[in-house]
């Protein structure tokens, strides 16, 4: 046991070298840990600040949206610019009644045999299939 204190390496006692090494390691470790933690905390603080700023921006945007979408303004715009008005009772319809108001399917056009009929104008054929296509 005592012999440990006498052992030397290149003139220095090993126990001193080991102690110094331990001390340096510990100091360096604590320094690195604190530095790492400080950077992390700074990053966290920066992200939190960013979140707060974004949250503020979101609140501002929400307030702006609420202001722009306020019913009085929407109604004034819709009636003034678009000529819209509240729907009447007769304009309401239940989903089950939609079928009654569905546009009837167009009658299928039966093409004449090529031998007995002149060549069909493709524009006319298009109109026959889609009668509403060229309507204004």
């Amino acid at each position: 046991m005592i012999g440990v204190f006498h052992k030397r390496f290149r003139g220095f006692r090993i126990v001193n070298i080991v102690g110094l090494g331990l001390l340096v390691t510990l100091v360096l470790g604590v320094y690195l840990a604190k530095t790492f933690a400080w950077r992390e905390r700074n990053e966290i603080a920066a992200v939190e600040l960013q979140i707060r700023q974004e949250a503020l921006r979101i609140r501002l945007l929400q307030a702006e949206v609420a202001h722009l979408e306020q019913p009085r303004r929407i109604q004034a715009l819709s009636s003034g610019a678009l000529g819209m008005s509240p729907i009447l009772a007769k304009q309401e319809i239940r989903p089950a009644d939609l079928q009654k108001f569905a546009r009837p399917k167009p009658e299928p056009v039966i093409a004449a045999p090529p031998s007995s009929a002149p060549e069909a104008d493709p524009r006319v054929a298009m109109l026959a299939v889609r009668p509403q296509a060229l309507q204004p």
Partner: peptide
Amino acid sequence: RLYPLGNT
């Protein structure tokens, strides 16, 4: 304090 809907 802000009231975005004004008079509403």
